Computed example of a mutant assay.
Amino acid sequence: MNASDIITGARYALTGIAAVATVENLLVLVVFACTSRLRMKYYGFLINLTLADLFYAVMAIAFTWGGSEILFSIFISGYFVGVWTILAEGINRYLAVSFVDTARYDVLVTRNRLVAVCVLIWVVSVAIHVLLAILPDSDFESNFDGVIKPVTVFVFWLITAVLYIVVFRKIKGYTTRLESSPSLETSCIEEQVSTRVRQTRRLLVTFTLILITSFICWMPLSVMNMVAHIHRDLEYQNAVFWLTGTVYCVAPMINPWIYWMLVPGFREGSRQMFCRCFNREVPAGDETVLETGM
């Protein structure tokens, strides 16, 4: 099999995977939009990640069959949006478990500020990539794609992983402290912290699985960019590029299934919308979080 055949097969495979990912993430957005208990700032970065996955999947199809340098730059910007969103959620969860008083977290992390952060992530990512695409070819652009970008992504992954570990340790400390307190003397603040810790742990587990999936699917593309920068005459370079791009697109296809398994209320909201089979009650712990709007 020659390089041309590999590229053709990869293009069709990428298109099929991206089409499935597009449908899945559109359905996720519909579920979030139509399920009242999911429309809250608590899921703000999860919704932004879904938008990034949808954007990447749609642009992957567009670039595959109508590629241009500008289109490729816009397409790859969705990759950075996903990386930064996963990191932003780690910071958000760290803040959530750092404040003993729930009200202080709500004052600091408002819905408008979360929206502003999401918009900033999109603007910066798209602007950087489009600007590099319209500028004349230079060594900086080559170094950016082959060294700066992959190294930045790896550093972000490392920071995110360390941050998630720190948050899990803080959650464990809170849980131990609350379990050692007499149940009859538990204060209102302790109950709020207990609920917040429980829900933060669940959402953090969701994003941890997303982080692992993203790392496995995105790492080959980053490694390929670095290898191609060092060995510019690499045989089958374009074929390997298309194969790693196809592997990357698996992540947006897997993430909706992670939401289905782990996000409280998502499965029930999906069933109510599309199946109308039954309407199960939300667990009491989830109701408390829904009322606080974390």
Rank of each mutant, 00 (worst) to 15 (best):
M40H: 10
M40W: 01
M40A: 13
M40Q: 14
K41D: 01
K41P: 00
K41W: 02
K41G: 11
K41V: 03
Y42Q: 15
Y42M: 14
Y42V: 12
Y42L: 14
Y42D: 15
Y42R: 15
Y42K: 15
Y43A: 08
Y43L: 06
Y43V: 09
Y43E: 07
Y43H: 14
Y43P: 06
G44C: 10
G44R: 05
G44L: 03
G44M: 09
F45W: 10
F45P: 01
L46M: 11
L46K: 00
L46R: 00
I47P: 00
I47E: 04
I47D: 00
I47Y: 01
I47V: 15
I47C: 07
N48A: 13
N48H: 14
N48M: 12
L49D: 05
L49G: 05
L49T: 10
L49N: 12
L49E: 10
L49Y: 08
L49S: 05
T50I: 02
T50A: 09
L51A: 08
L51V: 12
L51F: 12
L51I: 11
L51T: 02
L51D: 01
A52Q: 10
A52D: 08
A52G: 14
A52E: 07
A52Y: 06
D53I: 05
D53L: 14
D53R: 10
D53Y: 13
D53H: 14
L54Q: 05
L54K: 04
L54D: 02
L54Y: 08
L54W: 04
L54P: 05
L54E: 03
L54N: 06
F55E: 09
F55L: 10
F55N: 08
F55G: 07
F55V: 04
Y56D: 07
Y56I: 13
Y56A: 14
Y56P: 01
Y56F: 15
A57L: 06
A57W: 02
A57Q: 08
A57P: 06
A57N: 06
A57R: 04
V58Q: 09
V58M: 12
V58A: 12
M59Q: 10
M59E: 04
M59A: 13
M59P: 04
A60S: 15
A60M: 08
A60T: 05
A60W: 01
A60Y: 02
I61L: 11
I61E: 09
A62I: 12
F63K: 02
F63S: 08
F63N: 14
F63G: 00
F63W: 13
F63T: 13
T64D: 03
W65E: 01
W65D: 09
W65K: 04
G66D: 08
G66I: 02
G66P: 00
G67N: 02
G67I: 01
G67M: 02
S68I: 02
S68R: 00
S68V: 03
S68F: 01
S68T: 13
S68H: 02
S68N: 10
E69Y: 13
E69D: 14
E69S: 13
E69C: 05
